[in-house]
Simulated scan of single mutants.
Amino acid sequence: MKQTLAVLLLALCVVLVISGCGGKSLPQNSNGDEPNQPSKSTGKVDQQQSTTNLKTISDFFEAWDELFSSTETAINSYDDPFFGLELLVPSTELSIDIQYEILNLQNENGSFKGKLPLSGFPAFIEKDGAKLTFGYEYVREEDGWAPSMKAGDVLVENGSCDLAKEVYRTETVTKRDDKMVDHTYMEFKRIKGGAMLCLRIYGSSKNAATDEERMANTCTFIKAGKGSLDFVLAEAQIGPAFEELSIINKSDLTKEAAIEMLEAAGYVIETTGSVIDGVLVVDP
């Protein structure tokens, strides 16, 4: 699992090195500013600077990855080789968001625009002390590799991160003819004691392989500690217009409480389990 994340991070590092060594620069903003220069700034130190060790999206990912990766041997050793892929998706998506940092290499307060190095989408990131907001909007110019990816689709992502409160959220939507066909909502939170929670919900109205109508949802809940992991995998047939459940305002969430929350929202629990003493145990 960590090798997959390492490849993504290595690709980003290469881009960062090139940009810092006279390589091809990112396109300028519409107002003429370079992507790594602020288009506006408060001009003073923000009063809500983070008092944690989290200063960037990279820091947030590393905090999560340190915990999640501490159980990778147990996950990789499980009988089903594809089982760990479902648990890996939130980590992968969080790691990809690191690319927003190239728009603000100095990690300064202000608003910054440019193209994301991995996707090429026009994007922005805004920093106000410990608070970050970021996102992109892009119209697909041609059909993608999957039948469900159509030219003219509008892809939108909006994310935010409060480094002081140690919470992170992203929402990604694909619209076609002003209707949602794809929707992902994800949250991370570090709780007292250093453990971290993750909740990811995905909904689609299309079969990716055929583009036929099909309402489907998957939901992943993970509570990661050093050498420990609780998880819940659930499914539903709600589609992209699902209720956005949240862990942001919770001081903690056990596996049992997560099951109760998901079932109340109409999800069918598929698999639950834990990593205990270096062994992944699936609940009966």
Results as ranks from 00 to 15, higher is better:
17 V>A: 09
17 V>R: 06
18 I>W: 12
18 I>H: 12
24 K>H: 13
30 S>A: 15
30 S>K: 15
30 S>G: 14
31 N>A: 14
31 N>V: 13
32 G>F: 09
33 D>K: 13
33 D>T: 09
34 E>L: 05
35 P>T: 02
37 Q>L: 04
40 K>G: 14
40 K>F: 12
45 V>M: 12
47 Q>F: 14
48 Q>L: 15
49 Q>K: 15
50 S>N: 10
52 T>N: 10
55 K>I: 07
55 K>H: 13
55 K>L: 10
59 D>V: 00
63 A>G: 10
65 D>A: 15
68 F>E: 08
69 S>H: 11
71 T>D: 11
73 T>F: 03
73 T>Y: 02
73 T>V: 04
80 D>G: 07
83 F>A: 03
84 G>P: 02
84 G>D: 05
84 G>Y: 05
86 E>F: 12
87 L>P: 01
89 V>H: 13
103 L>T: 11
104 N>Q: 07
108 E>Q: 11
111 S>C: 07
112 F>D: 00
114 G>N: 02
114 G>I: 02
115 K>Y: 07
116 L>I: 07
120 G>N: 09
120 G>D: 07
123 A>N: 01
124 F>N: 13
128 D>P: 05
130 A>C: 08
130 A>Y: 01
131 K>Y: 15
135 G>V: 00
136 Y>P: 01
136 Y>F: 13
136 Y>M: 02
